[in-house]
């Protein structure tokens, strides 16, 4: 959908006014043909990215990684190690860029802030090279009263997180209570203050591409700075076709409103080959404007080491074993 007229631009602010306007708008979005969307990503998956293009893509992918640990077993020690890795992914090669952010649970935010920046606020310049993201809003299910989810958000921001990864209320979305989902996102956005808000759609639970497109627009209308595929905690996480649909949504949303929103596939992206397929998808769907860590991120943990191995292979011509790259 490409609404480019000036009148369409001003109309969108009214869409969230009532349940009826929201429903009319979301159900009026063009459908997604499942077969066609999957064929498109399969075709783009055959793009052959070699030599200089591959080197460029690997460095960009490293700069887009939200290095993530979201385990019950997370400890301050684990988080400090992750922060160190985020700042210097490849200690053997100073030309290797840092990742975009580390992503942790709210309880681990102060530890991560201290490890990344030495203080609880990210400063400009070198010391603030890496962002600090925190999942909030009763991640991953979102099944807690709104007040608790907002308190969760506020505590993460107070601890120093400058990016909040929230989950939407899938139960409300799937039962058609769009206004409720919308209002909750607006409330979390307000609770996030200056922090960037990434809205996790949990596409594995929305199942259909039509739902993914509607949820993407709903989140953007409610003020999301990023839309993100998954928590990584359900069996189906990020896929190329889901990301395609979301990239189409942010592209069309910018055409309609002038505001650019980022996209973050998360979960299940483990290899350089996968990451490059995503970058090709970004390039040929939303366009080069999104090929920047401000507008596209990978939520991943094991991806980073594969990127580093491939990066070393490209520069030295030989593969090193996993022992030559740091854990965490």
């Amino acid at each position: 959908m490409t609404a480019t007229t000036a009148s369409a631009r001003s109309d969108l602010s009214e869409v969230g006014r009532s349940e009826a306007t929201l429903r009319t708008f979301l159900h009026g979005l063009p459908g997604v043909d499942q077969v066609g969307a999957e064929q498109r990503t399969a075709m783009l998956g055959t793009r052959s990215i070699k030599t200089t293009a591959k080197a460029w893509a690997i460095d960009l992918a490293i700069r887009m990684v939200d290095l993530t640990t979201l385990e019950g077993a997370d400890t301050p020690g684990k988080v400090r190690a992750l922060a160190a890795k985020a700042l210097r992914p490849d200690p053997a090669d100073p030309s290797c860029p840092p990742v975009a952010a580390v992503c942790v649970y709210p309880t681990m935010v102060p530890v991560a802030a201290a490890a990344l920046w030495g203080t609880t606020t990210r400063s400009a310049g070198d010391a603030g090279r890496v962002h600090l993201a925190s999942v909030a809003t009763a991640f991953p299910s979102g099944q807690a009263p709104l007040e608790i989810r907002l308190a969760d958000t506020r505590s993460a921001v107070a601890g120093g997180a400058d990016e909040i990864d929230m989950v939407i209320n899938r139960g409300a979305f799937l039962s058609g209570r769009y206004r409720e989902v919308y209002d909750e996102i607006v409330a979390v956005k307000a609770a996030s203050g200056d922090a960037h808000l990434k809205v996790i759609l949990e596409t594995g639970e929305l199942v259909t591409y039509d739902n993914v497109r509607r949820a993407s627009w709903l989140a953007m209308l409610a003020g999301a700075d990023f839309i993100k595929t998954s928590t990584g905690k359900v069996p189906v996480a990020a896929t190329l076709p889901v990301t395609l649909v979301m990239l189409e949504a942010v592209r069309d949303f910018r055409d309609a409103t002038g505001r650019q929103v980022g996209v973050k596939p998360a979960g299940g992206i483990r290899t350089t080959k996968d990451a490059i397929k995503y970058l090709v998808l970004v390039n040929e769907t939303a366009g080069p404007d999104w090929l920047h860590p401000d507008w596209f991120r990978f939520g991943a943990s094991s991806l980073l080491n594969d990127l580093l191995m491939q990066r070393t292979k490209l520069s030295t011509g030989v593969y090193s074993g996993p022992d030559y790259f740091t854990l965490d």
Binding site: M1, P30, G31, V32, D33, V35, G36, A37, R40, E248
Partner: peptide, 11 residues
């Protein structure tokens, strides 16, 4: 007018 526009364009 009710076509899946992105896939229609691919087609």
């Amino acid at each position: 007018d009710d076509a899946p526009v992105d896939q229609a364009v691919e087609g």
